[in-house]
Design a binder for these strands. Structure first.
Lengths: 336, 336
DNA sequence: CTGAAAGCGCTTACAG
DNA sequence: CTGAAAGCGCTTACAG
């Protein structure tokens, strides 16, 4: 049997209005009646029904995390779920819930899903994968005047709010590290040209080199498919060139595996012959030796920050947030 | 501006009761008025306010997924999030939402979190990590009579509902496969004795061998820490013994990497000298060659099934579900 | 400081 | 088939 606010009111000999005030810790209730009410609430083990409270307050205390949650994606992209964990953490601290909104439905288009959920008023705001946002979706979001923040800058000019990793800055960090070690011929083991994260990191790489008056050698920048053999061969070519690099940055952990395999097969040693820095510990670092120096990015915190910004926006809907949150950390290990 | 049910009623010239009936597709409303109402709803782009509807219906259309969502867990245990994706998929198909309930709070104990959320009536049911369930938590759940299902059988006798992977059956599948290939001396590269998944798989291994009248050789069962060098050495010992196994089952993908490294360094070939089957493609299979034969387990479906059972339990709270859902699939590749 | 009353936006017997 | 009215369990001006 569940008690309601009127059960409490009755037993405490006060009105439901007064009980409501102590529940919500409003001022203007005498400490005597407050205590009395609290005592009854305790005895009855009473907790307010949040649905009723939310309806009356016209809030939901609920935030949506909108992305594509299809089968297997946690294996492909665990980062996304670490962001979600960060968002959940910060939301629950603020008395909010995080519910998942799957934009990957064969029956409905993304636009339709978003419109329906916004009109149904089932959440106070939304965290949205920026990569999924189109100008058309931007318009829908603005029409509804629904508090939102994108994870990842949309790939067009927008007045939506977003928060993103500063990949360029992270690459800069890797470059500075290698330059400090005395490296002067830096190579970049990159992904494919459609991979925005890689492209940002590459840009950071290039800018950092220019800033240090080092010429960017085009042949030292490689574009690789995510296949271990392709990467290996690509690295071999780099290492066999008469003008061999003395420092290599790998855009992810798979690149690091392939590249280090090549370095070892050339009987070169790290960091003496060649220093190496990789992005992302995950998922292959446990497998490789020597342990690679790595730039780690705290995506959990990205989720936390996204929520903080979204909350500001809920309070003041006019706010626009567009910000890079860097949070890279260099973990120096055995390859540099 | 958001329209309400009375706006619709007014413009359609009917009562809100009637509008409610067409929203909920109740019978006993003439097709003429139904059409009229639908037309207005469409014109106004009206969607019912779910909070209000839920309050009146005394439901929330919300299911909690309760587990520990701390920083970094998606990297350690992406399976958990694939289960979540499966649950979300099935829930949204049924008009429910999935919200995360983090049991990993330093300010509150698990018991307290569960009690508070259940009394607050913010969900109609709960999916709960069975590994976290204690007899004390069992009592709380039963007290509240709250529809629940555990993912993973709790490690004590319980009348809570649970659904689990049939690890034992999966191991059986691996054994049968190797026996069919003619192997007779099977080894098992296992994890640590506290790892329940491994223990279940080991049991399946042993039972399958006994069923086939093959003696289980104790020295062929190894217990290994999750460290690549430890695994390698353990496998080497197995391979160097005078009585070398002709088939090996690896309890996970890390075991497969270490074991295959040992096999290769012994200049043995797969599957001719030795056949190998591993559990889990993830995360290391992309790195290894030859491509390992693997028993894959569909955890996304586990989430889907958990939801189906939970829904039955919501309809009929007396239902108790305790079931193994196997869903293993053998993917034959180059090592067997 | 306290309470009566209206309201949040729906649904549900019930009467017609 | 349709609608008036009470109800879901809270909150919020407002009057006292």
């Amino acid at each position: 049997m569940q008690y309601t606010i009127s059960d409490v009111a009755k037993r405490a000999g006060v009105s439901t209005a007064t009980v409501s005030k102590v529940i919500n810790d409003k001022m203007y209730v005498s400490s005597r009646t407050k205590e009395k009410v609290l005592k009854i609430m305790n005895e009855l083990n009473y907790t307010p029904n949040v649905s009723a409270s939310n309806l009356a307050k016209k809030v939901t205390k609920n935030i949506l995390y909108a992305d594509r949650f299809y089968k297997g994606i946690p294996f492909k992209n665990p980062h996304m779920f670490d962001i979600i964990c960060g968002a959940e953490d910060e939301l629950s601290r603020r008395g909010y819930h995080l519910t998942l909104l799957n934009l990957d439905k064969d029956t409905k288009k993304i636009e339709q899903i978003l419109e329906d959920t916004m009109t149904s008023k089932s959440a106070d705001g939304m965290i949205l994968n920026g990569a999924l946002v189109t100008p058309r979706i931007e318009r829908i979001m603005l029409n509804f005047d629904f508090p939102q923040i994108c994870i990842g800058k949309p790939n067009f000019d927008t007045i939506l709010s977003w928060i993103d990793i500063n990949n360029s800055l992270s690459a800069n960090m890797a470059v500075e590290h290698l330059l400090n070690l005395g490296c002067r011929k830096l190579a970049f083991m990159g992904g494919q040209s459609g991979d925005e994260i890689f492209i940002d990191r590459l840009r950071g790489f290039q800018i950092a080199l220019q800033k240090n008056d080092i010429i960017v050698q085009e042949e030292f920048i490689t574009y690789n498919e995510p296949d271990i053999d392709v990467i290996y061969n690509s690295a071999m070519q780099l290492l066999q060139s008469p003008n061999r690099p003395d420092g290599i940055i790998c855009t992810n952990s798979l690149m690091a595996v392939g590249t280090m395999r090549a370095i070892k097969s050339m009987k070169l040693t790290m960091p003496d012959d060649i220093a190496l820095v990789a992005f992302d510990d995950y998922p292959y670092t446990p497998l490789i030796s020597p342990k690679p120096t790595v730039i780690e990015i705290d995506v959990f915190s990205l989720g936390v920050h996204a929520v903080s910004h979204l909350m500001r926006k809920i309070k003041d809907p006019a706010t626009i947030i567009q910000t890079y949150t860097a949070l890279p950390r260099l973990i120096k290990r055995e390859t540099s």
